[in-house]
Design a protein around this nucleic acid. Structure first.
Length: 431
DNA sequence: TCTGGGGTCCTAGGACCC
DNA sequence: TCTGGGGTCCTAGGACCC
């Protein structure tokens, strides 16, 4: 019989920071979004104080003035590296795995071994080798495994691994689980379910299949109902490549001029091209959106999105940047203060299976672009991201050394930690 | 003054085709 | 009173996830 396990990093970003800052253990710590905008991760101590996820940083500072809280800017280079180490350990213990998000990984297990012990040992191993605390849930399907991992996180008696392997355990767990915390049931559905007197996962699971069907006429909710009742019906995602890739940011300050937007959009486009190449795919459509500050209802708002179709699907930074620039020209309207922009690439297919543009004459050029991109990727991977960039990615503004400012430097990150795992210059020195 | 950045799936409805 | 009947593809919007 097949089992699913989920390995979930506890307070992932905070835990990554604590590996290199042991002084932050047992203290209230939050990690902020880009431009130090919102709280995106909290230590248990910060949660206990009542700091909510998504809370704007300035509000937190007002509301929790006088509390001893450490706030850190997000350092995605570090989090990406640390979680990759976690995954490499998981892979050794469970060859059949798929990554669900930056901090979660599903594995498929069979019943032959002692699954509870397996989970406890994996937890110990990840803690010892990477320093990351994880919670592990194991059950017959993914919805129940997620629920189990929450129990593992909440009750220390489980020793970081909760296994649901019988109907009695399943029903007990369901009865203790609020309906709004079930995987796949968000704010809207839980409000509607509560109108029908459903408070726990068990209340929902015990309704008849036809009642759920008639009341909601919704196949997604129906699948969740089946999983709560022990069937394995939610399909495995993330086994194939992504169908859309987006890179977008809010700006530290408003931007009204086209050249500065061009530079930002070039950087977003370049990131999208990198992501395409990493999963060995190409895109055929490049879209750009820009918008004014949606929180300022006293100002006139503008939001728009334009797409450009490529003659030949591509993952080349130069090609994607060019297309993004022409899309930007189309969405841009003078006279607005822009707060955010983004590039979205779609029409994604595996690289290699590209049907040629009927009128293409530039396959030799494509070949050269490909070699150029590979060389840039290699350098940026070995030496550090943004070591080599396309000219249009460089900001007009220069730093103290006379060098052009880079994308990373354009973000406001006043409380950022070092990158001891990916930058030679920031490696930890003991003496 | 300061408010994140990614993704997925499903459905309904319209355009278009034969 | 009573619209032909299939199809496919695309898009927008709504729900969800982390």
């Amino acid at each position: 019989m097949k089992y699913y396990g989920i390995i979930d990093c506890d307070n992932c970003y905070v835990s990554c920071e604590r590996v290199f800052r042991p002084d932050l253990e047992h203290r209230a710590v939050v990690v902020l979004s880009n431009n130090d905008g919102c709280v995106v991760a909290r230590s248990n101590e910060a949660k206990a104080l009542g700091i909510k996820a998504g809370m704007p940083f300035y509000q937190m500072k007002q509301q929790f003035a006088g509390f001893d809280i450490t706030a850190l800017s997000s350092n995605y280079e570090l989090y990406g590296e640390m979680t990759a180490r976690v995954v490499s350990l998981i892979r050794k213990e469970a060859p059949h795995y798929f990554r669900y998000s930056i901090d979660e990984c599903f594995v498929v297990l069979d019943e032959s071994s002692d699954l509870k012990q397996w989970g406890e040992l994996l937890h110990q191993k990840i803690k010892r080798y990477v320093g990351m605390p994880v919670s592990i849930g194991i059950a017959r399907n993914k919805t129940l495994a997620k629920m189990a991992s929450h129990f593992a996180k909440r009750y220390s008696g489980y020793r970081h691994c909760c296994l649901i392997d019988s109907d009695s355990k399943r029903e007990k767990a369901l009865s203790l689980y609020p309906i709004n915390e079930v995987w796949g049931i968000g704010r809207r559905y839980s409000a509607r379910l509560r109108e029908h007197g459903i408070e726990t996962a068990l209340d929902f699971a015990q309704r008849s299949e036809s009642w759920v069907n008639m009341t909601f006429r919704n196949i997604v909710l129906m699948r969740t109902w089946r999983e709560l009742n022990g069937h394995d019906v939610v399909p495995d995602e993330h086994l194939s490549h992504k169908k859309s890739i987006c890179t977008s940011r809010s700006f530290a300050a408003n931007i009204s001029d086209l050249p500065t937007l061009h530079t930002h959009v070039a950087n977003f486009a370049s990131r999208c091209a990198e992501k395409l190449r990493r999963q060995q795919t190409v895109a055929s459509v490049v879209g750009v959106f820009i918008n004014t500050n949606t929180f300022r209802d006293d100002l006139e708002q503008y939001w728009n999105f334009e797409e450009v179709r490529l003659a030949t699907p591509s993952s080349s930074s130069l090609t994607i940047i060019q297309a993004a620039h022409s899309a930007l020209e189309r969405v841009f309207r003078r006279g607005f203060e822009y707060k955010k922009a983004g590039v979205i690439v779609t029409g994604i297919s595996p690289d290699g299976a590209i049907e040629q543009d009927l009128f293409a004459t530039d396959s030799a050029k494509e070949q050269k672009l490909r070699q150029l991109d590979s060389a840039i990727d290699l350098i940026n991977r070995r030496i550090g991201s943004e070591t080599v960039v396309v000219g249009s990615q460089q900001y007009a503004q220069k730093d103290a050394d006379g060098k052009h400012t880079t994308f990373a430097a354009s973000l406001k990150r006043d409380h950022k930690s070092k990158n001891p795992t990916t930058r030679w210059s920031e490696i930890i020195k003991l003496f």
